[in-house]
């Protein structure tokens, strides 16, 4: 809600919370399962962050294990891989933010212009499908298509263009394009759902008025549709900023190859290999906590900027 809109709401004297809860008890009761779910599965396990400050002993559990202060944070900040994994994570995330984030917006705008409903539905359905395919399957498909030993792409290279076969999955310079393009392929269709829904809320009268004034489709899309879904874009962008240190573990882990390891080791794969796999639970938790705090700070910052510049914010 914008600041302007908030100021326009007349000041109304409200009943005390207790009275409101009693009055709307049926609705609050319906909220209860969700609240319990959050408490049990999201908040209760959070006591596990204590591990970041403990020398974990199997027989003592989290609470009784001895305290070690900030030892693991120090270890991570001064680890040989620290800057490398942070840089890799940020590069992959920013690339995805720059390419994967606008892709569903563009597709939604294009789909909105399609007049043939049958064609539109087919395109939507086909573009949604990759979302339901696991990254393991996507990676297997990529391997089969791009293998230098009889893969589709390399067969074209060698047999049609007379070029040498190329090991796309294993060449360092192809890692970023492969990661970003496969991410777009998998997520673009699903991502359009929110934007298509937002587009439906744009008043048809605006389009009619614009057409009367001589605006074409492109101008309508640029001056009416896009501004109409701007709050949705802004909110999703703020949320995406909060996840900037999540570069998609499944995808990156599967696509890691010896040749691209220098640019594909991200925070989460580092935690998995050096922390969890080696049983260094305290170290792994410390990195996780560091990541969460950093992400939350980024999200607050993006929210504040968005609020100041565009008067759009999550809270």
């Amino acid at each position: 809600m914008t600041r302007q809109a908030a100021q326009n709401i007349p000041h109304v004297r409200r009943n005390p919370l207790r009275v409101r809860i009693v009055r709307h008890s049926a609705i609050y009761f319906m909220l209860l399962p969700a609240a319990v779910w959050f408490a049990v599965f999201c908040y209760q396990p959070m006591y596990g962050v204590l591990l970041a400050f403990k020398d974990y002993k199997f027989n003592m559990g989290i609470l009784r294990s001895p305290w070690v202060g900030l030892k693991y944070f120090n270890q991570f900040l001064f680890a040989a891989e620290f800057w490398n994994v942070i840089r890799n994570t940020l590069v992959i995330s920013v690339l995805k933010l720059a390419c994967s984030f606008p892709a569903p917006i563009i597709l939604a705008l294009l789909l909105n212009e399609v007049q043939n409903m049958r064609f539109k539905r087919v395109v939507q359905t086909v573009s949604y499908l990759p979302h339901f395919v696991s990254w393991v399957v996507v990676y297997s498909l990529l391997t089969i298509v791009f293998t230098p030993y009889g893969g589709l792409v390399n067969s074209l290279r060698t047999q049609v263009f007379g070029l040498e076969a190329m090991y796309y999955m294993g060449e360092k310079q192809y890692f970023y394009p492969m990661a970003v393009l496969s991410d777009i392929w998998k997520g673009v269709g699903w991502g359009t759902i929110v934007y298509l829904s937002a587009i439906t809320s744009v008043s048809p009268e605006l389009y009619e008025a614009a057409i009367v004034d001589g605006a074409g489709r492109l101008r309508c899309a640029w001056h009416i549709t896009l501004p109409g879904i701007r709050p949705t874009i802004a909110i999703l962008f703020i949320l995406a900023t909060g996840g900037i240190l999540n570069a998609n573990t499944d995808q990156v882990l599967l696509m890691q190859q010896p040749a691209n390891m220098a640019i594909s080791q991200i925070v989460d794969t580092y935690v998995l290999k050096i922390g969890i796999r080696e049983g260094r639970f305290g170290y792994a938790t410390a990195i996780g906590l560091f990541k969460s705090v950093f992400s939350a700070a980024l999200m607050f910052m993006a929210n504040a900027i968005s609020k100041r510049v565009g008067e759009i914010s999550i809270w």
């Binding site: 270890q75 360092k172 010896p258 080791q265 290999k273 050096i274 796999r277 260094r280």
Partner: peptide, 18 residues
Amino acid sequence: NALMAGERERVARESAYF
């Protein structure tokens, strides 16, 4: 043990292969 944790040698070696 912290120095040897993970597969750093393997990662370095295989990266060098490529």
